[in-house]
Design a protein around this nucleic acid. Structure first.
Lengths: 241, 241
DNA sequence: ACTTGAACCTCACGCTGGGTCAGGTTGTAT
DNA sequence: ATACAACCTGACCCAGCGTGAGGTTCAAGT
């Protein structure tokens, strides 16, 4: 008539966890054994085993122990907690995808010599430092809206099927170059860094710039450079192409 | 002739970090200020600022402080460290994608009532418990190879363009059902749980089962069930469809 | 009944990357 | 000289356990 009892080691092995984990679960109040022996050894009951397997299932879904407790103690909260967790996972996934793309383009950008990487790293840090310095200097919103307008123009070009070297695309690229130069504020080093990064690092901080759009802008900028070097080659090195 | 110095608060604000972070970086030997004032206030030099911005750039790529120190102290290791980090990120990304898929199918499986979710959770935990119990019972390899062979057969059907209800596909599905029943080992509850999970949770632990393949198997199993219910409807409820 | 060895017990510190006090000292402007 | 901001060190906190240390209890064999 009395139900089966499990000692902590038995339960740990059955569930594929360590004894320490069960201790921890008890410590935070997530899974408290039904009783103890007279000598204070833990004795788990069937309900505990059931609960432990549910905990395992939810942990396998990546949930925090705190959330698991909420979900198990108030079962009407289960749906809500799972949904919230899915949201966080999707956010994290997005972040990590971005991260992976950046890492890929940085490491596979031509040859992977350490010197090259160090230079890229310097470029990244200088650009970020510069961006941070400007950021505090409240002319941000205006610039952001101009970038957004530019994105719209480029998307229109793409939708119309214009080639990146078309008139309209190059006009937009010209505006982009203007913005870039305003950002660099006349510092040649920053411009160089930006040129270096343009391939591996799209204009981030700005939502709505998908890779396709970035590639298109890149192509249009290249077309613009091409044109400049053809028509103004004799005017010296001061032109900003 | 003396270089510019930064006090800790200045540097923190310029770099967009907290003072505590700089303290921490010093504590772990990642960024030690060039000098101190007579009253022990930290004074950072230009090289320190440079280093801090590199640290920031690498942190932005998700690297651990330990890896960052390795990369910055031995710049020939930079490439290696970045590459290793990319590998870890890709692995993590894969894991999280799987996780997201599972969460999505669980939460969006029909209506999202908490009762339904709790039942799914119970099914998950019972199946996992059962799988774990079998796993220790060393008949694993044989079963795995049969699943692999089955995957190959299904892939061949797909490649040949066979419909899931074709003769060959149903034959493969029949083998699948046999394996599933062997797994359940006659326990009706487990079979029910598996049926419940089949939609939301593909046979994991088995590499090489992409979603497409899973869907195909699912369709073939459905076709098989259909057939059974048509030809054997009068034979009672004991048939395992 | 006694012994032995495995299993168990409770602290308590370790990891990451800092956040957040507390209580005392220094730098700088007036 | 005085006020006040900025700074100092030290310490505990988060998650989810891993990994001991040092002592006790359980279950089996003799």
């Amino acid at each position: 008539m009395s139900e089966r009892r499990w000692r902590v080691g038995e339960l740990a092995e059955a569930a594929g966890m360590t004894v320490r984990t069960l201790h921890h679960y008890e410590q935070i109040g997530l899974l408290v054994p039904a009783t103890r022996t007279s000598g204070d050894h833990r004795l788990y009951g069937e309900a505990d085993v059931e609960r432990l397997y549910r905990i395992r299932a939810l942990r396998g879904l990546g949930m925090s122990l705190e959330d698991i407790r909420t979900a198990l103690d108030d079962r009407s909260a289960l749906a809500e907690v799972l949904h919230a967790h899915l949201g966080r996972v999707e956010l994290e996934l997005e972040r990590m995808t971005l991260l992976r793309d950046r890492l890929r383009s940085i490491t596979s950008n031509g040859r992977t010599s350490s010197d090259d990487l160090l230079a890229t790293l310097n470029a990244m840090s200088r650009v970020e430092r510069h961006a941070h310095a400007r950021r505090s200097h409240n002319e941000r919103e205006d610039v952001e809206s101009r970038w957004r307008a530019l994105a719209d123009r480029l998307r229109a070009c793409m939708a119309a099927g214009d080639s990146p070297s078309s008139e309209r695309a190059r006009a937009a690229a010209s505006e982009a170059r203007e913005l870039i130069e305003a950002f660099a504020n006349g510092e040649a080093a920053i411009l160089e860094d930006l040129a270096r990064l343009r391939e591996s690092d799209p204009p981030r901080d700005l939502a709505g710039w998908d890779p396709e759009l970035t590639r298109y802008l890149h192509a249009a900028l290249a077309a613009l450079s091409e044109e400049c070097s053809n028509t103004q080659r004799s005017e010296g090195a001061t032109n900003p192409c």
